[in-house]
Design a protein around this nucleic acid. Structure first.
Lengths: 238, 238
DNA sequence: CAGTGGTCTAGACCACCAT
DNA sequence: TGGTGGTCTAGACCACTGA
């Protein structure tokens, strides 16, 4: 019903999270896992590499696979999940206000960001995120219409990513992120409860599909005191 | 002299950067590459997966491997490279001042960050980074002495990472990064040219070795107008 | 349909670590 | 030295794409 190596990955990942292996302990050797799962060694290695990639274990040649402290790295895998989804996980004290939802011709700046011609249309969505009664994030999303044909206020209030991946069945492949700090614009001041803060943290996000097409450009504008970005990077020795 | 798949990776990566394959074009198929490099398909696939991981190509089942626009992603691979090294690449207009270099017992906060006992000693290094005549970054590094025994002002002025990886021969394996925005401390004000800025961007960095040991904790404190963070994340569909 | 990439196998040899 | 993970091979079958 599924890929064997992903099943093995998930099984071991769950066991680690359930505490079956303590941090610092070693997993069974690859040879032992081959026998336990009745599969080939390359398949076991694929599963273990995924576990290492996602911070569950550290493989050391000649020693074994050491289990890491998963709690230390308990954040969305790979840093690709947006702050919108992070905020949504902060309990029930959050709300989303859709301030704008238009299908229109893109201006020059957005055309450049999305790499589209002046003839094509884009969806422009502005959403304000409120947490604990304070409006602290302004999300400005721009979607290439050739990918997203239909969009409603209901979809925007929930998760647009859910809609794209589950309803439309398209897979997000990779994203480029850029974080800078700027002075608030009049737009920021009017939408957000800035409480006198002099700076805004801007997260620019370029999201690509599996077919290598750029379909979304997002600017997430955060009040600085509520901003936090966490990243977990594995070094590949080339 | 080296791993075959890394040699193939480097060769293709160089060809892409040299413009032999234009963005949007397809690489030769895996079968063709097997013949070109006289190797097995799994080895070719390892090389191609590295290329995809680092943003050079996008593999699409049934179609082929599409070459991406490398210029769009021309930043340090994996986001693990520190801002110190970034600054060092910004031309010749930068200087580093070592303001502090001590081997001492860690205080409570640092003991917690580095996960060391109260008996062990840590290196504390403060460095101010000047670019275009302005002091804009304060780097506070803490090294676990059990990993780094010796440290001099000369090493700190150059790159500590170079020293660790090339002189000591230890390999950095993975890092956890955290970015937040805070108000400047008196220390920030005294070291940096803040020009009235009300906020400081703090990048906390936890760096681990191949043996899964945490050896360094760093706080990089940036003046907000000169701060920029770029990240490239690939989604793994699990 | 032929061609592409994705998964899986069984086995080999090597590099590294502990004893 | 025996056990570990790292690389490499040759071949098989599957899933997806496009003509």
């Amino acid at each position: 019903m599924q890929n064997k190596y992903l099943l093995i990955y998930r099984e071991i990942a769950e066991e680690i999270q359930a505490g079956k292996y303590a941090a610092g302990e070693k997993l069974p050797s690859e040879h032992e896992l081959v026998e336990m799962f009745e599969t080939s060694r390359e398949t076991i290695r694929k599963a273990l590499n995924q576990l290492a990639q996602n911070g569950f274990i550290q493989k050391i040649q000649g020693k074994g696979s050491i289990v890491l402290d998963a709690r230390k790295f308990d954040f969305p895998v790979s840093g690709l999940v947006s702050f919108r989804e992070l905020a949504a996980n902060m309990g029930e004290r959050h709300r989303t206000y859709v301030e704008k939802l238009e299908l229109k011709k893109a201006d020059k700046y957005i055309r450049k960001q999305l790499e589209v011609s002046s003839a094509s249309k884009v969806w422009e969505v502005h959403r304000v995120r409120e947490i604990d009664g304070e409006k602290i994030i302004l999300d400005k999303d721009y979607f290439n219409q050739s990918y997203i044909n239909h969009l409603t206020e209901e979809i925007c209030e929930a998760s647009i990513y859910d809609y794209i991946e589950n309803e439309l069945g398209m897979k997000i492949s990779f994203a480029k992120k850029e974080i800078i700090v700027v002075e608030p614009t009049d737009e920021d001041r009017s939408y957000l409860d800035l409480n006198g803060f002099q700076n805004i943290v801007v997260v620019k996000n370029y999201v690509y599909f599996d077919d290598a097409g750029l379909f979304q450009y997002t600017e997430s504008r955060h009040r600085p005191d509520k901003f936090k970005f966490v990243d977990f990077a594995r070094r590949t020795h080339l």
